[in-house]
């Protein structure tokens, strides 16, 4: 049956390539989001190729210049080229987003697997996670960065702390339902060692939802980094990030709002495309959606 419908579904090429059920339709919006994200990633990763100027070169003669051929987005209060800073700034912002998502997912997966499988550990772990979830993420990050000083790695760790509990909850709930499955019982009764059961039988169930979760964490980490910088707690401005470019622009906002709006626009478009891709992935992976399609 499945093979027949797969063969007759027009335009199912991409969906089939991604291992999705037949008839899954991907609208045009996710493609635009993907293109936009790829574009932003490319221009920031290859910022040295595209930047017209040195992002940290001070030029007192060119303070707060409007857009021109030489400075496409104008200059900031120190005469630095805003376009170059936004391009380079994306490197730090994207690094923080991706690294936070990766660390939070790996740590959350490990803790969640243990919590889901060992009842004894579960109660304790979940109370700790509840406590971490009760602390507003920005406040936790603010406190950690304030005490440990702001560097790329401390900012990443500070944001990771408040993202881990969400991953743990997700993984745990999946493990709790998967461990009742016959194949897990069979593995246990065959005397399979615990790490093998966790890794080979339970972990794969969590992969798809975790990919979706990772996109949301990445988006949220980019936003929190911006907030930290904006509050004056982020990485120093000699390393531009989208957040600290906007923080720099605060003083001169009334004079030159574009100092906040340009980096803000690029950051928002980046986070928006990540969120759209996350939503698309979630909708496609949702088993209830599959049923509806069928």
């Amino acid at each position: 049956m499945a093979d027949v419908s797969r063969a007759t579904t027009p335009g199912g090429g991409i969906a089939r390539l991604l291992g999705l059920p037949p008839g899954t339709r991907i609208g045009v919006v996710p493609w635009i989001a993907l293109a936009m994200l790829l574009f932003i990633v490319l221009v920031t990763v290859f910022a040295p190729l595209f930047s017209p100027h040195d992002p940290i070169a001070l030029s007192p003669l060119n303070r707060l210049k409007p857009s021109s051929a030489e400075f496409p987005l104008g200059t900031d209060a120190y005469g630095r080229d805003v376009l170059s800073r936004v391009l380079y700034g994306g490197q730090v912002s994207l690094l923080i987003g991706v690294a936070t998502a990766a660390i939070a997912v790996v740590a959350g997966l490990a803790i969640g697997l243990v919590a889901g499988f060992f009842r004894l550990a579960d109660a304790l772990i979940m109370r700790v996670m509840d406590a971490f979830m009760a602390i507003p993420p920005v406040l936790l990050a603010v406190a950690l960065v304030a005490i440990h000083g702001a560097s790329v790695s401390s900012v990443i760790l500070a944001i990771t702390f408040s993202e881990i509990p969400r991953v743990v909850r997700l993984v745990r709930s999946i493990v709790l339902s998967a461990r009742e499955e016959p194949y897990v019982e069979a593995a246990i009764s065959l005397g399979t060692r615990m790490p093998v059961i966790l890794w080979r039988h339970l972990m794969p169930n969590t992969l798809a939802p975790l990919i979706v979760q990772a996109t949301y964490i990445c988006a949220s980490a980019i936003l929190i980094e911006a907030i930290l910088s904006f509050l004056g707690l982020g990485i120093g401005t000699e390393t531009p990030s989208w957040g600290n470019i906007m923080a720099d622009g605060r003083t001169y906002f009334m004079l030159k709002p574009s100092l906040i709006f340009w980096p803000g626009l690029v950051l928002s478009l980046c986070v928006l495309s990540i969120n759209i891709l996350g939503d698309t992935a979630r909708d496609m992976l949702d088993p209830r959606m599959r049923k509806r399609e069928a």
């Binding site: 988006a219 936003l223 911006a226 907030i227 904006f230 906007m246 906002f253 009334m254 709002p257 906040i260 709006f261 803000g264 950051l267 928002s268 478009l269 986070v271 928006l272 969120n275 759209i276 939503d279």
Partner: peptide, 29 residues
Amino acid sequence: SVAGFSVPAFVVGYVLIKVFAADLRWLPV
């Protein structure tokens, strides 16, 4: 809704200040 998630709060704030306080002068900055 997706857009609401994606724009940092302070950018929203500054856009609102720019439009309603600085340009239209309806509300205090």
